[in-house]
């Protein structure tokens, strides 16, 4: 082993891969800041990554052509509701499975594990048919409600709670706290990591939701960002600068959140690999 060259070699490899990985992002950012006409023309050389003569025209255009703020708020609202309600609902269920003794516990937990492997895609058509029958199409509700209960989240909470020291709950019971009181006063404050993990995983999987909104929404007023950029992309005239500006604005909020809470994101994702 040539130890002297080992580290420089690793750096070189990382740098090479890093350039390949970052170039689409750099291209997007640079393209969003230059006049429309030059985006395609300059895509073939180094100028693709260099916005000479920076302009915010594209960003202004986006707001002039579509109601970007509306889409953003839609996305934030829908995801906020899914994550928030999901944390409550799934953690309560996870706790009931992990710590309470009740009739049907084993059977129902088996069911939760079973539905864990059914992907949305496998039920999209009948689900769509069902919500059409009750007239839920084109609402916020239809984009939120089906995704609150999540078998994988329940499972993650379950595995976390079962690993918590039981003495804390026993102490709380002797101190006179009931199950719900124990849950909210004792368990919740000591389970921040699993809540962060589930929040991030839910957010990551829902923020890009495309198939379901495509199926159930038709009006602009309730559509989320991922669908909006696809529509914007096919909206004539085709102006790449505007599209890239749209993209940058769309990814910016989550990118900021990601950079701020990076440690939690990485830990959360790494968690998916730890399964039974």
């Amino acid at each position: 082993m040539t130890h002297r060259l080992f580290v420089p070699m690793i750096y070189l490899c990382l740098l090479l891969f890093g350039l390949l990985f970052i170039s689409p992002i750099g291209f997007m950012l640079a393209g969003s800041l230059k006049p429309d006409a030059r985006v395609l023309v300059e895509a073939g050389d180094w100028r693709a990554f260099w916005p000479a003569g920076v302009t915010l025209d594209n960003y202004r255009d986006v707001f002039a052509r579509v109601d970007f703020a509306r889409y953003l708020l839609n996305s934030l609202f829908i995801n906020g509701m899914i994550v928030g309600a999901g944390l409550l609902v799934n953690s309560l269920a996870g706790y009931a499975f992990a710590r309470l003794l009740w009739r049907g516990r084993e059977l129902l937990f088996g069911l939760v594990l079973a539905v864990m492997i059914i992907p949305l895609e496998a039920i999209a058509v009948p689900l769509f048919y069902m919500v059409s029958l009750v007239g839920w199409r084109d609402t916020y509700l239809v984009q939120i409600l089906p995704f609150i209960a999540n078998a994988f989240s329940v499972y993650l909470f379950y595995t976390y709670f079962i690993g918590l020291p039981r003495e804390l709950e026993e102490a709380a019971r002797i101190d006179g706290a009931g199950v719900l009181r124990t849950y909210f006063s004792i368990i919740l404050p000591n389970a921040k990591p699993v809540f962060a993990t589930v929040a991030i995983l839910t957010f990551l999987s829902q923020w890009g939701a495309f198939l379901w909104p495509l199926m159930v929404t038709s009006s602009e007023t309730v559509r989320p960002l991922p669908l909006a950029i696809a529509t914007f992309h096919s909206l004539p005239p085709l102006q790449w600068g505007d599209i890239l500006a749209f993209g940058v604005m769309m990814v910016l909020p989550i990118l900021v959140v990601f950079l701020l809470f990076q440690r939690w994101f990485v830990r959360g994702v790494a968690h998916t690999g730890i399964k039974g």
């Binding site: 003495e167 026993e170 102490a171 101190d175 009181r181 006063s185 000591n190």
Partner: peptide
Amino acid sequence: AMVFQNYALYPHMTVRRNLEFPLRM
């Protein structure tokens, strides 16, 4: 009242809050 082997103090509460908890209940 019970004293546990590993004490089972509520980690997120101060000593005062720990002492207060059973009384609040």
